[in-house]
């Protein structure tokens, strides 16, 4: 009697060979493509308890250079797109994220050592943040621009313009919500971005590239690099073709170094702001930090025989 069940168990095992799981090769997201680091290097990424999760590409300065070239190339079309179109695309990103919510909940949970429900709250907040900024694309101009009263026969109009290519050091602790909270405002207003993902927890950021690539976001508008933050940030801060830098992910010492390097071509610098709770309402500061104001003086005068003027 006892032999029989044992036998059947054995045959069961040999017939049902265990499936090998397919590991994902995490890659950079540059110019709408998914390259490995030019240097060929990778580094080990672990979860909050030190267990190995994956190897992430360790970008070099040449990857940073390539990303800037891609971002510059994308800037003309992205900044020239209508605000309405940009809003639709940002909303589309939220839609795509929603469909892959489970994947991000798992990745964020592993990366930050959060329970499933806490990780889900982070991901939901990140998706909502895309929607929030999607709504801002065609409203920011009314808030920070407008007609100025001047003492002369002029129409005087101020309108916000994107700054250009923005290097973004994503927050180190909040690997996904923090990342979205610094990237979305940059691209919402028409800038293009070169993003350095959180050094310890880059996987959610690298996965975000897959969503961006399928959301009608033109290649090069957002470029995502992983690796040693200080190594990649230094050439970006000194790069003459980068117009602004967001130092959210830099510590005090690094931030000072980078700000000095950034002064060379008068980059706009957003210094690290202490953020305890990324779920709090973000306000418009991160958008206005990377906007320039263009003011146009348009002469007016009396119009026609009635003598009316504007």
């Amino acid at each position: 009697m006892s032999d029989k069940p044992e036998k059947t168990e054995k045959t069961d095992k040999s017939e049902r060979t265990e499936r090998l799981s397919v590991f994902k090769t995490y890659k950079l997201y540059v110019g709408g493509k998914f390259p490995r680091s030019e240097s060929g290097r990778v580094y080990e990424v672990t979860d909050a308890k030190g267990k190995w999760l994956a190897n992430a590409p360790q970008s070099s300065r040449k990857d940073a250079r390539d990303a800037v070239v891609a971002a510059r190339k994308a800037f003309g079309a992205w900044s020239g797109a209508t605000a309405y179109n940009r809003g639709q695309i940002l909303y589309r990103i939220a839609e795509m994220l929603e469909g892959r919510r489970d994947q991000y909940v798992r990745e964020v949970g592993e990366a930050e050592g959060l329970s499933r429900s806490k990780a889900a709250a982070q991901v939901d907040a990140a998706i909502d943040r895309w929607v929030w900024y999607a709504g801002w694309t065609d409203k920011i101009a009314q808030v920070v621009g407008g007609g100025n009263p001047v003492a002369g026969p002029f129409f005087n109009l101020s309108s916000p313009e994107p700054t250009g290519v923005v290097a973004v050091l994503a927050p180190q602790e909040s690997s996904f919500l923090g990342l979205v909270s610094v990237v979305a405002p940059v691209v919402a207003t028409g800038n293009t971005a070169v993003v350095i993902a959180s050094e310890k927890a880059p996987l959610p950021a690298l996965s975000l590239g897959e969503v961006l690539a399928t959301s009608d976001l033109p290649g090069g508008v957002v470029n995502i690099l992983s690796g040693r933050t200080a190594e990649i940030a230094a050439p970006l801060a000194a790069h003459q073709d980068v117009n602004a830098i967001d130092l959210a992910g830099a510590d005090e010492v690094l931030a000072k170094e980078l700000e000095i390097a950034a002064a060379d071509n008068l980059k706009r610098v957003l210094r690290p702001q202490p953020v305890d709770d990324w779920t709090a309402a973000p306000g418009t500061e991160r958008m206005t930090a990377f906007l320039e104001t263009k003011t146009v003086w348009h002469p007016t005068g009396s119009l026609g025989a009635s003598g009316s003027s504007y």
């Binding site: 800037v68 510059r72 050439p235 000194a238 790069h239 003459q240 073709d241």
Partner: peptide, 9 residues
């Protein structure tokens, strides 16, 4: 110079 230049230059 040791830093990347750009098309503005």
């Amino acid at each position: 110079t040791g830093r990347y230049s750009g098309p503005d230059y």
